[in-house]
Simulated assay, not measured.
Amino acid sequence: MNVLYPSFPIRRLPAMILIAALGVLVAGAYGVVHDQISYAISPEYFTKMKFRQFDWADVGLPPRAFASVVGFLGTWWVGMVAGWFAARAGLVDLPRAERRRCVPRCFGIVLVTAAVAGLIGALVGVALARSGDLGSWDEVRTELAVRDVPAFVIVAYLHGGGYIGAAFGLVFAIVYVRRRVRSFN
């Protein structure tokens, strides 16, 4: 089975779409919580950068609420991709009862891996910020008029780590799904 391009019986499509849609909701909720934490660390990361990137979605909400919107919009697609590839890896081939157990575990693997990698990224950002060696961030400081560069750096690393973690988490989840499928064949 090739997981990169669609070649599957059409009867599997509804389950695949449902799993991808669940991924959208799970990842979007994760993004909301993640960006509330990020906003608490560095409001400037949002007010100076993220809110500009997502200005098309600004409907006049208070900044914390808009950070939640940005969090959802920044992560929903990760869940869709994770759900789609997990489904393609064989989730839809499992018996219904096993699929119901596997789907939450699959998304849990991605979420935990993303959160751990995000935490590691944040810790790297903290170490960098404490080192005082933030000269490589001078362009960001100048272009975006960032005042609290250490907090900005911590959140930048937190976000980068989270996305890297989600990619690794998807790989781990696919391995998990493939093992479950093999155990039923």
Rank of each mutant, 00 (worst) to 15 (best):
G79S: 07
V81R: 03
G169I: 10
A167L: 14
Q53R: 15
R12Q: 11
N185T: 11
V33G: 06
L128A: 15
P104Q: 13
A21L: 10
Y157M: 01
T142G: 06
L123G: 13
V140C: 10
A15N: 10
M80Q: 04
C106S: 14
E143G: 03
A173F: 13
T75E: 04
P150M: 10
A127P: 04
F172H: 02
V140A: 15
A40E: 14
G90H: 12
V81F: 01
A40Q: 08
L25H: 07
A21V: 10
L111P: 01
W137F: 07
G31H: 00
G132Y: 11
A173G: 14
D58P: 03
I164G: 03
G135H: 13
M49P: 02
A129T: 12
A65E: 14
V70Y: 00
S136K: 05
V24P: 02
V24R: 07
V155I: 15
M16P: 02
V171Y: 09
F184E: 14
V149L: 05
A89K: 06
E44C: 12
L144D: 01
A156D: 02
G79K: 05
R182N: 15
M80I: 12
P6D: 15
R179V: 08
R101H: 06
G79D: 04
S183L: 07
L119E: 11
S68K: 03
A29Y: 04
V92L: 05
L144R: 05
S42Q: 02
F46R: 06
L73C: 14
G31D: 02
I109S: 09
D93H: 12
H159V: 09
G169E: 12
A115H: 01
W84P: 02
R130V: 15
L73S: 12
A127K: 06
G60D: 11
L119R: 05
G83K: 06
V146T: 04
P9M: 12
F46G: 12
P9I: 13
